[in-house]
Each structure stands twice: as C-alpha cells, then as structure tokens.
Amino acid sequence: MKFKILSLFFIVITGIILIYGVAGMPDLADPDSPASRHVSPEYIQNTYKDAHTPNMVTTILADYRGYDTLGETTVIFTAGIACILLLKNLKGRKSHD
C-alpha cells in the first residue's frame, strides 16, 4: 500500500513535468510548425523527380532512408533468432507445478 502511494506520487510528478513541457510545443495541425518547415518540403517536392512514385512514405522509407530500413530488418532478424534460441529446449526443460 505504501509502495502504491509512493509510485502514484512519482507518476503525478512525471505528469506535471510532461505538461510543463507541452507549453513549448506547437499547436495541433499548425502548418508552420518547426517539424514541417525544415526538411519535409524538400522530400515533398523531390520525391516524384527522384523515384517516380507518387506515394511519399514508401519513397522515403525505401529510397532516401534505405539503410534505416536495413537496420530495422537486422533488429527483426535478431529478435527472431533470440526467440528461437530461447524456446528451443522448451519441451526438454523440467516443469515446475
């Protein structure tokens, strides 16, 4: 019970800090927000010229940021190998009832 009250206290503190941080964020759906002024117009204007695909998301995912996607594939591969190695000897292990 004491632990629960202490953790609720910490959670409320975290919430207050996060709400304080929200005050510096741009408004919702603001066309002039910093995220959509700097690099995204370049992508929007050049995707069809560079890759001849109308869908910008696939172009950025597979062309401009192809190495990023390659790294993601490595992560999935590592996770699959880890699952196989962990669950390989599941039948032979002694079970505890």
């Binding site: 995204s40 998301v57 950025i60 995912l61 992560v75 999935i76 699959g80």
Partner: peptide, 17 residues
C-alpha cells in the same frame, strides 16, 4: 508531413519484435 509517418513505421515493427 511524411517524415514522422516513416519513422513510426519503423517503430511499430520494432515494438512487435
């Protein structure tokens, strides 16, 4: 803005891993 969508596609797949 297409850039956050791309980054979050990666994040969803990593989440399931």
């Amino acid at each position: 803005n297409p850039l956050p969508h791309v980054l979050m596609l990666t994040a969803i797949v990593v989440m399931v891993a």
